[in-house]
């Protein structure tokens, strides 16, 4: 197995404060892994450096054998590494269909097709509808995204990520702020996506139930450093991890 993502000694400091310290890890092709850690452990910062939102202080990120360290976000997405956001970050005034159509058009190099009419891009619209079906929003295609319920907005967030046809997806707390019912729906969506698309997933989450039910392998981040990695059983049994979480919640 070859790693699809290889992070080497990645560090991100803001002045004197280092949110990510010397983190090295590897994610294999067609793997579904989780990155966990208490609030403020540096998970989101880690994502922001991987996806070009922040510049790395030092270290390297290799994706599909290519050095993507400090490339701009749109380049990284075009190479096949796509992400979702913890705080819903979608195109609110656009319809649900348009939310998914934009990444597809860009991916196919149609962004500058001035003279083509949007509704004549049938192939791309069909593809967007397929994704809508996958995320269970077929009946909401023409609704402005701002009018959706919270859970559905989160699903659109995932749909936008998929529309970019990534090789690997980083999900940042996909179930943040969800009701238990919505959370279960999201978990089964992610499982379904993984089975159907074989995309590699890296998921941050602090709901341990979600993590243990999805991930085959887990990385633990604590105060910006990689504290442990292993299978869910190994992580559960790891005393250092237990300590970081102050006991309790790892068993949940």
């Amino acid at each position: 197995m070859t790693p699809i993502l290889k992070v080497e000694k990645l560090t991100k400091c803001f002045g004197d404060f280092c949110a990510v310290k010397n983190v090295s890890l590897e994610v294999m092709k067609e793997e579904i892994v989780a990155l966990i850690g208490p609030n403020g452990a540096g998970k989101t910062t880690f994502y922001n450096v991987l996806t070009g939102r922040y510049k790395a202080t030092s270290g390297r990120v290799i994706f599909c054998g290519k050095d993507i360290t400090n490339l701009s976000p749109h380049r990284i997405v075009r190479l096949g590494l796509s992400r979702s956001f913890q705080i819903t970050n979608i195109f609110l005034e656009n319809t649900v269909l348009e939310n998914l159509l934009a990444p597809i058009l860009i991916r196919e190099g149609l962004g500058l097709a001035f003279l083509k009419k949007l509704h004549k891009c049938e192939k791309q619209i069909q593809e967007a509808h397929r994704i809508l079906e996958l995320i269970g929003l077929s009946d909401k295609a023409d609704v402005p995204a701002s009018l959706l319920a919270y859970g559905d907005k989160r699903a659109v967030e995932i749909g936008i990520v998929l529309a970019a046809k990534p090789k690997m997806v980083l999900l940042d707390e996909p179930t943040a702020g969800m009701t238990p019912v919505e959370t279960d729906k999201m978990i089964s969506l992610i499982k379904k996506l993984f089975e159907e698309t074989k995309i590699t997933f890296l998921i941050t989450e602090h709901d341990m139930k979600v993590v243990f039910s999805i991930a085959k392998r887990i990385f633990v981040l604590h105060q910006g450093e990689l504290l442990a990695q292993g299978t869910p059983e190994e992580i559960r049994a790891n005393p250092k991890v237990r300590e970081a979480y102050l006991g309790g919640s790892v068993d949940a």
Binding site: T51, P73, H74, V77, R78, S82, F85, R107, A164
Partner: peptide, 8 residues
């Protein structure tokens, strides 16, 4: 978000 769907 546009940048993160691949838009320059």
């Amino acid at each position: 978000r546009s940048a993160f769907i691949g838009v320059n």
